[in-house]
């Protein structure tokens, strides 16, 4: 009896874990790509290895008067320019989007808005490759869910670390 219940729980756990992977992979494959400008800083995490702290220029484009009227969580409407770098247009209020406009989720803190993630994890010792990061590359779906897939340098190229070219 206990072993059977154990089996059920185990299957359940594995299904949940893999379903989460599938959701992220789908977003990564089907999402629309957009860049957000960064303002980086950097210490490290204990359980997950090296990482870099991120902040986005977009977060500073909102004035506090605009912010006061908004809910704790919501979506921003952003518009990518010719280099695909997104900039703030307005807060989303359920309206129809103009062509090229995209949604991105945010949450409010006491002082400003935040777009997750505020960190980027990489292999221990690879910090040097990411010093040139200027933009974060996101994949977004139409509902405003997003995924940070890579960091991008000032020439709009993805940073791919390689140990050989030290």
């Amino acid at each position: 009896m206990r072993l059977q219940a154990l089996l059920v729980f185990s299957v359940l756990v594995l299904v949940v874990l893999n379903f989460e992977i599938w959701k992220k992979e789908k977003l990564k494959a089907e999402g629309q790509s957009v860049l957000l400008q960064l303002a980086p800083v950097d210490p490290r995490s204990l359980m997950q290895g090296d990482y870099m702290r991120l902040e986005y220029a977009l977060e500073d484009m909102v004035t506090s008067e605009q912010l006061d009227k908004q809910d704790k969580r919501g979506h921003l409407v952003i518009l990518p320019n010719e280099n695909n770098v997104g900039s703030f247009v307005r807060f989303y209020d359920g309206e129809e989007l103009a062509p090229k406009e995209m949604l991105i989720r945010y949450h409010k803190t006491n002082y400003d808005i935040q777009i997750v993630p505020h960190s980027f994890f990489f292999q221990e010792g690879h910090a040097k490759f990411y010093e040139s990061a200027r933009y974060g590359e996101f994949k977004c779906d139409s509902s405003g869910k997003h995924l940070l897939v890579a960091l991008v340098n000032e020439k709009f190229k993805r940073i791919i670390p390689s140990d050989e070219e030290k």
Binding site: L6, L12, V13, E20, G49, V116, P117, S119, F121
Partner: peptide
Amino acid sequence: AVFGQIYQTGADAYQLFMGWAALIFGW
């Protein structure tokens, strides 16, 4: 933790512990 690392979810740490506690509760 690996999931958060790979997909750069940057989720608040409480979400990791919440998911962890919920998933293993049956065991």
